[in-house]
Nucleic acid binder design. Structure first.
Lengths: 212, 212, 212, 212
DNA sequence: CATGAATGAGTGTTCATTCAT
DNA sequence: AATGAATGAACACTCATTCAT
């Protein structure tokens, strides 16, 4: 009600998010240095000066984009793994399905590509991202694999490498989307691609059913 | 040493390669826009003006880096696949092993990360790279999978997606190396990582040996 | 004084004219390539970046200087020729007198010298200047000569060449002022010079009054 | 004979003149700053380094071009004026005719345009040119006018201004040729133009033949 | 003598940042 | 809060000049 009553007020509060959304798109497309604040402001429909009311500098904007972009990423996943009842294969399917719904198929996925491109220019931020996102994502995956092994569903593999091996195709899907996919087309239907990946990975993880 | 004796060396033959090597490193690390030609020149041990004796512009240098970087990439692989005698599993191991030796473990691998980062800014070049490298790499992988299926070693999978799914972890290895790996460490020993990947993938591709 | 009070003035309206005036002076003095945009900006009392708020490039500034410099040039003259009542000799005197007051004795006269110096580097602009200024100036002169002949004041001469022959000393006066005049002094008092020219020219045009 | 026997030797001695000829053309067309020594060398068919064997710097080349370009200019004229037998009108015709043959219709004429364009950048050279060329040219013209007055052919006019007034159309002819003439065509046949000019000027100088 | 690879100071242009309004 | 004119440091690119060959 108040929002409707004071549209300008509502606008003010939404500004930072609008600016960050605009910035994310441009950062992903052109990189940090290649993105002009003029363009960010224009895409958000404000003047360049307004940007500085909400962010101290271009770098602060970049960091905010990364940090805001990762906040919602991993909370849900943890709950899912804890609560899941069913085969671990289905859990992995569910986890990756959720990830696709909430992140991969979202502009948030651009954050991954962005961080990859800009890690060299923002090492501290990369460390932060590593600790806040990657490590926690790996934990999630590790718990899934451990659950599968414990249940006798998955055979024993080198956990710490398998985690990344299995997540790599999922990451490449979004990396492609935000890099060559923009000029060369998407190459794969995401659903089919993830299906094939899960099929291969689960078969690869499966215990050898033959005695030979 | 000779360099000190001849500060103004004449090395017309060697210069372009030296400059491109220096440029590749910096482009990979800082991106196209973030790389200063002064730094490229300094790293190659020449002055900025010398760059322009060999490349018309920063963009021309970038394109040369990409194009030269892909020339030697796929020739060997084709021969290997044609000539290989042995199981297809061993062929896949050999192919990826070769790739790692000749590319992945080389500065050439940086080209992949670079192209991913800059595809948005150089769409035409991305299309060229797609046609010259990616398509041909996919062909190689497709022939391996087809050989495995024809020999009864691999089960039938969706070829076109499986190709990319299987190569994705290999790519992520070098992407990591040239992005967060630089600040957060390598996370995996490449040999172990590739071993685990091949183990999982080959098991995933294997025909179900149990009737159950 | 106010300038000191407001070092960062906002003068959006006045800026282009100020910049063009500064640019004209420097272009005339040093030529297009020899003029530094830093100097133009400094002379106009702004920073170099400000120039680019109003002109896309150095070349755009140059073209604007020429084009703006010729706008007011020939309008008045046409009216004068149409409305003049009196001898054609007096008309020619009045026309050249007006030209001197409104152009020759003004910074606008520098445009002529500038166009002469830079025609080789800006051929399209030279054609434009030719069509917009020179052709129209010639028309004006032609009408004067025709009037004189029709009235029996002037003898018949080759109009198209006489036009330029008669205007040449007037042009040389301003060319001198903006070239060697700057280092070697003006050589002539403009009034005396124009007086002598008109005296000679009108005598030259006059019909032979003696039958011999 | 020696020249034919040692063509390379002959070449060496001709080099400075070839370079200066190439330089004159480019300086006239593009101005001093706008001319690249690469282009001068290329037009003369030598390498850029060779230029520096003959001229200490770009500025030295420029000065040589001007100074060599004016050496032969006025010697002949003085002799002509001294020796001429006939009417002063014919002397003026002969003098300007000679000037056209030996200078105006030659690349040397470009020196005038060049000096006009670059006087602002080379004030000392302009002073030199003024003293060496212009003053002496004026002297020549003054002697002609004085001869005409003394002979009763010309009426008394303000000598010092008349000199320049009368020479101005001749100068404008070559200025046009080397500026807008290059893009907009020559506008006049030089012979006709000079004819008209002499006709007007001599008529303008003539004593009034009517008693009125 | 002649060459042309190499240099580095200089300039046009961009863009993050500031600040008067 | 919001604007956008103004700034100036930074960088791509040029070209006169040098010098090893």
């Amino acid at each position: 009600m108040e929002a409707l009553a004071h549209p300008r007020q509502r606008r003010k509060e939404a500004r930072p998010a609008e600016l960050m959304a605009a910035a994310l798109e441009l950062f992903v497309e052109k990189g940090f240095v290649g993105t002009r604040l003029d363009d960010v402001a224009a895409r958000a429909g404000v003047s360049k000066g307004t940007l500085y009311l909400y962010f101290d500098s271009k770098e602060a904007l970049f960091k905010a984009v990364i940090q805001e972009g990762i906040v919602p990423i991993l909370e849900e996943g943890a709950g899912l793994v804890d609560a899941f009842e069913g085969s671990t294969a289905d859990l992995l399917r569910a986890l990756i399905g959720e990830w696709w719904q909430r992140i991969g198929n979202t502009h948030l996925a651009g954050v991954s590509k962005l961080m990859i491109s800009e890690a060299g220019n923002f090492p501290e931020l990369a460390v932060y991202y590593h600790d806040a996102v990657i490590t926690r994502g790996r934990d999630l995956m590790r718990r899934v694999l451990q659950r599968g092994v414990a249940a006798g569903e998955f055979r024993v593999v080198e956990f710490d490498t398998a985690i990344d091996v299995i997540f790599a195709p999922v990451l490449m899907l979004v990396i492609w989307r935000y890099s060559l996919g923009a000029c060369c087309g998407m190459a794969h239907d995401p659903q089919t691609y993830l299906q094939t990946h899960l099929d291969l990975a689960l078969n690869g993880l499966a215990v050898n059913r033959s005695p030979a």
